[in-house]
Computed example of a mutant assay.
Amino acid sequence: MIPVAGLGTRVLPASKAIPKEMMPVVDKPVIQYVVEEAVAAGIKEIILVTRAGKSAIEDHFDSHYELEAELARKNKAELLATIQNIVPPDVSIISIRQPEAKGLGHAVHCAASIVGCEPFVVILPDVLVNNGGDKTTDLMRMVVEFENKRAAQIMVGEVPDNKVHLYGIADCGGIVPESGRSITIKGLVEKPNQDESPSNLAVIGRYVLPGKVMSLLAKGKPGAGGEIQLTDAIDALLELESAEAYKMMGDTYDCGEKLGYLKANLAYGLQHSDTANGLRQFISTLTSAHG
């Protein structure tokens, strides 16, 4: 499940007419990287929780007969393949509307009728997780951990102490897991003050959850910011069963804000065969020019 109903206010004016999820990182929109991450983890049904004004996202994953016909006519087979193979044929994409912006938990619960009682994955489209070409991604590892232990997996990463108020924070009893490993969570706190934070392990934006989280969201009351928080539902889950914090191995880029978006373009640009050499030379030129 990918909640894409946000307004993208942190990247205005770019997101005024274009969904923030459709802003390009090198040659693909942010949302495509996220969908590819889900597909690589073995997910076959992807739910987009969307709103009015986001039809460009759905269009991107649909076929485009005129464009495909024109590329075929011009014998541009390589380009044609890039748009025909965005989503494998055995993967389906479903859209459902979030009628009001009431928080991440509310957005997730909008898909309850589709998810039912089955386990599900939540991926925040603002955050790209770059595993540097590693064929085994963090999300893949999280899915395997969930299947082996049947315990919810919450991706976390360390953030500076003065930034904890911006995140949901995991309480792991003072223990920090090794990268690529999971440990039991004692609790979650949404956007705590620095002096009240149980750790600096921030929830990054990848969750593998049991279906019962949906029933907990249905009972949820507004939390931080007056919104229905997914963090609060997971905290309620901890009263019923164990959940684990998975410490990520890759690098994250918050494409929902300007600096993170620029960093993502640099990082992915340096990994792309068409742009790596030229971009590296350009960075070197900038570095030399500015000392």
Rank of each mutant, 00 (worst) to 15 (best):
M1G: 03
M1S: 08
V4F: 05
V4T: 03
A5D: 01
A5F: 01
L7G: 12
R10K: 14
S15T: 15
A17P: 01
A17N: 14
I18N: 13
P19D: 08
M23W: 07
M23N: 03
P24A: 14
D27W: 07
D27A: 03
P29C: 12
Y33R: 06
Y33Q: 07
Y33F: 15
V35N: 09
V35F: 06
G42I: 01
L48N: 11
L48A: 04
R51G: 08
R51Q: 13
K54I: 02
S55M: 02
S55D: 15
E58L: 01
H60D: 04
H60W: 15
D62S: 15
H64S: 14
H64V: 13
Y65S: 11
E70Y: 00
E70L: 11
E70T: 07
A72N: 12
R73A: 15
N75M: 10
A77K: 12
E78Y: 06
I83F: 01
P88M: 01
P88A: 04
P89Y: 03
S92Y: 03
I93N: 11
I94S: 13
I96A: 11
A101L: 08
G105Q: 08
H109F: 14
C110W: 00
C110E: 15
A111Y: 10
A112E: 14
E118H: 14
E118A: 10
P119Q: 11
F120S: 04
V122L: 10
I123T: 07
V129H: 03
N130P: 00
N130R: 10
G133R: 13
L139M: 06
M140Q: 15
M142H: 05
V143R: 02
E147H: 12
A152L: 08
A152G: 09
I154Q: 01
M155P: 03
V156A: 05
G157M: 15
P160S: 00
D161F: 01
V164E: 03
V164Q: 03
Y167H: 11
C172N: 13
G173P: 07
G174F: 02
I175H: 14
I175Q: 06
V176C: 10
V176E: 12
V176G: 04
E178T: 07
S179Y: 01
S179E: 15
G180H: 09
G180Y: 06
R181W: 05
I183K: 09
I183P: 06
L188N: 10
N200G: 00
L201D: 12
A202G: 02
V203G: 05
V208G: 09
V208I: 12
M214Y: 00
A218V: 01
P222F: 06
G223F: 08
A224E: 13
E227A: 14
D235R: 09
A236F: 02
L237I: 00
L237G: 04
L238T: 08
L240C: 00
Y246P: 06
M249L: 12
G250L: 09
T252V: 13
D254H: 07
G260Q: 10
L262P: 01
K263P: 02
K263Y: 10
A267K: 08
Y268D: 06
G269H: 00
H272Y: 08
S273V: 09
N277Q: 11
L279I: 08
S284E: 12
L286H: 03
S288A: 14
S288M: 09
H290Y: 08
